[in-house]
Write a protein that binds this DNA or RNA. Sequence first.
DNA 1: AACCATCGTTGATAATAATGAACCGATGGG
DNA 2: CCCATCGGTTCATTATTATCAACGATGGTT
Lengths: 263, 263
Amino acid sequence: MSSTVAKALSLLDYFSDSEPEIGLSELARRSGVDKATVHRMLSVMCDHGLLEKRGDARLYRLGAGVLRLARVRETAFPVSAVFQQSLDALSAQIGETAHASLVSGRALATIGVSEASRGSRVSLVAGEILPFHSTASGLAVLAFSRPEVVDRVLAEPLTARTSRTPTDPDVIRARLQEVRLTGYAEADQTNEDDVYGIAMPVFDTDGTPAGAVAVAVPAHRMTNDLRRQIIAALFAESGKLTVGIGGHPSAEFRAAASRFGSA
Amino acid sequence: MSSTVAKALSLLDYFSDSEPEIGLSELARRSGVDKATVHRMLSVMCDHGLLEKRGDARLYRLGAGVLRLARVRETAFPVSAVFQQSLDALSAQIGETAHASLVSGRALATIGVSEASRGSRVSLVAGEILPFHSTASGLAVLAFSRPEVVDRVLAEPLTARTSRTPTDPDVIRARLQEVRLTGYAEADQTNEDDVYGIAMPVFDTDGTPAGAVAVAVPAHRMTNDLRRQIIAALFAESGKLTVGIGGHPSAEFRAAASRFGSA
DNA sequence: AACCATCGTTGATAATAATGAACCGATGGG
DNA sequence: CCCATCGGTTCATTATTATCAACGATGGTT
């Protein structure tokens, strides 16, 4: 839990699209680690190309090493490209912002976004780490994950992102049960105010969720009709994606999908 | 030098296009670190999404986290996309394989390749970590780097990749001086047998090399005419790339370029 | 211009976390 | 059927790393 490399790697989580460059003191403050320690860890990560200091400023940013790593992963197991294509289709069809995330350790990593072209839309801070318990994507993934994964996630302290965020493990377990029956997860302003998200899992080769695709809508604009449209579109795209990455859905999800199809 | 996080991160260097999945014992053997230690480090990196074990097999591969990191870096500082475009143009024009790499800590990380369409061509094991002293790209970068960077690189032990690899720091310094005068670096089978590489630096905002573009040709096919073609094309593309990433070339490189132009 | 806050960096001490050999059960090839 | 090798685990020893304070530099403010 408190290994040195874990602390070092967790520093990477603070970099996102909204904050691609961060200073030493800022990182120390956020992570709660001593400044000197952070400094040494950042230096090591710079040496390995995971980070780099911008020449002039004294800010750190993600280095060229991550580009190489991503390239290696994408050429061996192309998923990012496959997802982006589906996201573009989704946002075009629905007219709202679509995004995708993959299971990345004990959280979700946003790996693609396709924003709607209309003026008022949900503008995601992309590239962020998403919590499991407060996002539609997280619930969608968790609902079809193995019980021990659920236990591990719910054992950790659950922070309330908004006033509506469920933080009681039992409440969340109940919601997961719903998700298992319907096949999709909804998050009505539980991760961010005014954002209503609907998500569906995408499955890996072993039948466990590899990630999720989701559509995010300004909460006030959500209607029953729009919900139905989104869910139908997600079933289509999630299916394509699961096939696209060589996976196959769990029996539970297939059952939920057929229930929806016959409704 | 022997910090824990450094050892952990160096494990990532063994993943490449030719070997996107590696087992525990294999990594322990290569890195020379104890199996137990490697196991703990891998576990931590899995928890953070940098790596993941493939569900069925017992192999480790790069995780979804690297995709997120690369995405964040690319949206903030798009270089990978810019490079790929130039690489495609180069390989189309010359008819040989072109590749690009960026300074990544104490080495070069290959971030893009565009293979020629012809049958006999250099097929790079892409996504690899390139040494500075044995590759044309490395020499091109080093030649225009600050003296202390050169000293640091040449202070480390230089491994002979082929029978022609220069391992004497003084010999390499002499070659760097040539590169500074001509603006390009050549590597005649010093990194890989039968591969002749020509590379040119691409500069960052602060006038230091951010990386290099290179063309690799089967050694037996290299002629003076082809050399001249490649060098001319590289001057054009390297210039575009330097501008494309918002950088500006060092005075020394500009001088070399103008000498070539007037020749 | 002088000040104050904050930045990145360094160094000595104390305590933590890494180490590596031995061991286990499972797997697969000879 | 046996042996080699795999991934994974345990535990006592020790070397590593976190800590905390102080320092010089930087930059914005009064």
